[in-house]
């Protein structure tokens, strides 16, 4: 079993950490911006959200709201698929090399 110092120096560990960090924090920032943006629209520009989408009564706010909900799911999906494909693979290699 290798020590944590050795694992930390493993280039694969460095790669895993930097990739996961940048993806995780970037996606968090994207979610925060989408959500706070939505709240700002609600607070400052309710009329914009209330504008009709087409000829009917459906307003722009409906697809925008649904978009925020769906974006939460999609962003999570992006992270999970990236992590399943790439991070788990790296982690497995690091774990094996540390034995």
């Amino acid at each position: 079993m290798k020590s944590w110092e050795e694992i930390e120096r493993n280039p694969k560990f460095v790669e895993l950490v930097s990739k996961r960090k940048s993806l995780g924090w970037t996606l968090s920032a994207v979610m925060l911006i989408i959500y706070l943006g939505f709240i700002m629209l609600v607070a400052y520009a309710p009329k914009m959200l209330g504008a009709p989408l087409g000829a009917g009564v459906t307003t722009i706010g409906i697809p925008v709201g649904i978009f925020v909900i769906v974006s939460a799911f999609i962003l999570t999906g992006i992270y999970v698929s990236k992590a399943n494909a790439e991070f788990d693979n790296l982690t497995r290699q690091i774990v094996e090399e540390s034995k």
């Binding site: 924090w25 996606l27 968090s28 979610m31 925060l32 989408i34 709240i39 939460a72």
Partner: peptide
């Protein structure tokens, strides 16, 4: 919307 958006953060971090 407010009740949902915490979940991605939980996943990412």
């Amino acid at each position: 919307v407010g009740w949902l958006v915490g979940w991605p953060i939980v996943t990412f971090l």
